[in-house]
Computed example of a mutant assay.
Amino acid sequence: MAIDSRIQKTDIIGSYAAIGDSFTEGVGDPGPDGTYVGWADRFAVLLADQLPAPDGATHSDSPHGNFRYANLAVRGRLLDRIVAEQVPRAKELAPDLVTFCAGGNDVIRPGTDPDDLAERFERAVAELTDAVGTVMVTTGFDTRGVPVLRHMRGKIATYNVHLRAIADRYHCPVLDLWSLRSIQDRRAWDDDRLHLSAEGHTRVALRAARVLGMDTPADPDQPWPPQAERNTYEVRRDNIQWAREHLVPWIGRRLRGESSGDTVAAKRPDLLPL
């Protein structure tokens, strides 16, 4: 995998803040206490493991050294609200690294112009790059295998092209999810087929670490184990169950103008040790 030449493997990242929506909050990857984990939390652990132990200590004493991490993401957030709420907080925290993933909830809405969306995204990137160490830009997924979003694939691809161009202009590393082949597997997705599973989030965290030139404990594109083929009846039964439990409520929220994150706050609003 090619490594962005602007990111040196020897660079020390001692603090990290994640900006975004449900993807970055970690929906689909529940932890033992009921809160979501997700790729950003997992990526934070990989970053922390790269830090040398504090003076006079070993990693067995303090496994994550002095590393600090904030996750400002909230499920359901649209780009403008992320820019209004999370970007100023990230600038205030001024970490060594910010991951910026936004616009996914906007681009799948009817009538949204990906060109206009990208202009607003770029203004936020300009703000962030003036205030923090490094901004990693995250592209959208290839949705060819997502039933609800398959017809949005061309629109998402257009937005992704803009994101890569913005990243190039502001010298940002790119977490390219479109090209991550392993998350095209059904097992990379949660039962709702809109959010990643725990394994899918893990694959993204590994890819993010590789973008920064880090050694990782596994290959994010490692092939999945063989899986038995399902018959037509099983596929139809699963599709009906999915529509009843996930698709209908999702459409209902859209029609009512509600968001799954209306009553949710950021899970880690401050830079805190892991």
Rank of each mutant, 00 (worst) to 15 (best):
R75P: 00
G76I: 07
L47M: 15
R68C: 01
S62C: 12
N66Q: 10
L51G: 13
N66K: 05
P52S: 12
P52I: 06
L47Y: 01
L47R: 08
N66P: 00
L47Q: 06
G76H: 07
A73G: 09
V74S: 02
R75F: 03
S62Y: 04
G56E: 11
S62W: 09
P52H: 05
L72D: 09
D61C: 02
G76L: 06
P54D: 05
L72Y: 12
A53S: 15
N71V: 05
L46N: 05
T58G: 14
G56Y: 11
R68I: 00
P54T: 04
P54R: 03
R68H: 02
A48S: 12
L47H: 01
S62K: 14
R75Q: 14
H59A: 15
L72M: 10
V74Q: 03
P63D: 07
L46M: 11
N66G: 11
P54E: 01
V74D: 02
L72P: 12
A73V: 10
G76F: 04
V74N: 06
N66A: 14
V74T: 11
D49I: 00
R75I: 14
F67E: 00
L72T: 12
L46V: 06
N71Q: 08
G56S: 10
H64K: 12
P52T: 11
T58F: 06
D55Y: 05
G56N: 13
D49C: 01
L47G: 02
N71W: 09
L72C: 13
D49P: 01
Q50C: 12
N66S: 14
N71F: 06
D55L: 10
G56T: 07
N66C: 03
D55I: 11
S60H: 10
D61R: 09
Q50M: 05
G76W: 05
Y69H: 14
D49M: 09
R68P: 00
N66W: 00
S60D: 15
D61N: 03
S60K: 13
H64Q: 07
F67T: 01
G56L: 12
L46Y: 02
S60W: 08
Q50H: 11
T58M: 04
S60F: 10
Q50G: 13
H64V: 09
Y69M: 03
N71D: 13
L51C: 14
Y69A: 07
A73I: 13
A73Y: 09
L72K: 11
R68L: 02
L51Y: 05
A48G: 15
A57N: 01
A73H: 11
V74E: 07
S60V: 10
H64F: 15
L72G: 13
D61V: 02
L47W: 01
D49A: 13
L47T: 01
A70I: 05
N66H: 05
N71K: 13
A73L: 10
S60A: 15
F67K: 02
H59G: 09
Y69T: 03
P63Y: 06
A48W: 01
G76A: 13
P63G: 09
S60I: 06
R77V: 01
L47P: 02
T58P: 04
L51E: 14
A70F: 04
R75C: 03
P54L: 04
P52K: 11
R75N: 08
Q50P: 01
A57Q: 14
A70T: 07
D61F: 01
F67N: 03
A70L: 06
H59W: 03
T58L: 09
Y69I: 04
H59L: 13
R68A: 05
P63Q: 08
H64I: 05
P52W: 00
N66T: 15
L46R: 12
D55Q: 10
T58H: 04
